[in-house]
Design a protein around this nucleic acid. Sequence first.
DNA 1: TCCACTACCTAGTACCTACTAGGTGTTAAC
DNA 2: GTTAACACCTAGTAGGTACTAGGTAGTGGA
Lengths: 202, 202
Amino acid sequence: MHTSPPFRRDRARLPAAERRRQILEMTTKLIAERGFWGLSMQDVADGCGLTVPGMLHHVGSKDSLLVAVLEYRDEEDAKSLAQKLGMPVNQFWAEEPARITLPKVCSALVARNAEQPEIVRLFAVLEAESLAPGHPAHTYFKARQRRTLDQFTALAGEVAGARELAAQVVAMMDGLQIQWLREPETVDLVSAWEAAAARLFA
Amino acid sequence: MHTSPPFRRDRARLPAAERRRQILEMTTKLIAERGFWGLSMQDVADGCGLTVPGMLHHVGSKDSLLVAVLEYRDEEDAKSLAQKLGMPVNQFWAEEPARITLPKVCSALVARNAEQPEIVRLFAVLEAESLAPGHPAHTYFKARQRRTLDQFTALAGEVAGARELAAQVVAMMDGLQIQWLREPETVDLVSAWEAAAARLFA
DNA sequence: TCCACTACCTAGTACCTACTAGGTGTTAAC
DNA sequence: GTTAACACCTAGTAGGTACTAGGTAGTGGA
C-alpha cells in the first residue's frame, strides 16, 4: 500500500536570498531560546517549512549557520544605530572627539536594544556560551569585546581612566539587559539605563 | 568469540555521598563549558569513571541533576562568604543596618568569585540560558535574582534609590565577570571591581 | 555466617543528531 | 523549446540522547 507522495508541490519555492534571510531569522529566535549547543537543525528546518537537507543547501553546516547569523545581526544593528544617530554607517566611530559622545551612543544603543529583546537574548546567551574556548563563536566574541571596548574608550574622550570607564559602561549595559530580560514586566530597560548612566557619567 | 568481561572489578566503589559530590563537581565543570542544553549524561558518567545508568542511580535524571548542582553551589558559596565576612551562615543578610555594608559584601563576593572562574562561568552560562521560560532552571534564577536584589537593597541602607543602586551593583558585577572570563590574562577581576565600586558608591 | 542493602552493571528502548549522496521537478535565460 | 541552474527532495549513515528493567557483586550489621 505505501502510497508515498514523492514530492510536495505545495511548498513555496523561495529565491535563495529570501530563504536564507528566513533561515537566519528563525535561527536567531531558536538560539535565543536554547543556545547554540541546544540548537537543532531539525527545528530550524521545521520552522521554515523545509526538510533538513533542504535547509542545509542554503547554509552548509551548523557552524557556518552560526557565523552567518552573527554577521547578519551585526550588519542590521550597525545600520539601525547609524540611522538613530543620523549619520552614515561606519563613520561615527571615527568622528573627531566630542562631535558625538559616549552617553549619546549608549542611549541610542539601549533604545535600539529595548526594541528587540529576542536579539538581545541571542547575544546574551551566546556571549556566555562562547566563553568556552571550543565554542564556534569563541573568537568572534573575543574580537567583538575588544572592538567594543576600543570604540567606547575612544568615545569617552581624553579623560584619565577612559578605558576603565568604557569597561564599566559595557558591563553595566550587559548586566542591566539580563535583569530586564528576566523580568520584562518589572524592569524598564531604558529608564534603568538612564539612572545608571547618570551615576556612571557623573 | 565474544569474551565478555561481565563485571569490572577494578572500579572504585564509593559511598553514595562521596560519589554524588564527585558527580556534582564534574557536572559543574561540564555545564560551564557547554551549558545545560549541551550537557550530556554520557560525558558526566565518563568523567566520573561510571556508566550512565550507574550515575543516574545517584541523581535520578538530567533535570534533577541541574537542580542539585545549583543547590550545592549555593550552599558552598554561602558558607564561604560567611566565613570571609567572619560571621555564621545566613545571618549577615539580616544584620541591623550599617553593621555590615553593601561595599564590604561586594568585595567579599568578588574576592570569592575571583578564586573560582569555573563556577562563575557556570552561573554566567546558566543565567543566560535560563532566560528562556522552558529552561529547567528558569524559575530558580528568577527567584535568585529577586532574592539578590532584595538583599542588596537592604544592605544599601536607607538611601533614596537603594533598589536602583542595588540593581546597578548586580549588573556591574555580572558584566565585569563576563569580561574577566573572556580575557583572564588581561582583566583583573578584583581591581576592575574596586574601580567600579569607587564610581558606584561615590 | 547469613542477609539485607547498596553501588553499579549489562542490555535494550525509542528517538534525535548533523550530515551526505544522489536525485526530481521548477524556473529562467537563450 | 531546450537547457542549465536552482531550490529542494528522499533515503541513508554513523553516531549520540536520556532513560528503564532487571540484574550482580561487594559491604556492614546481626
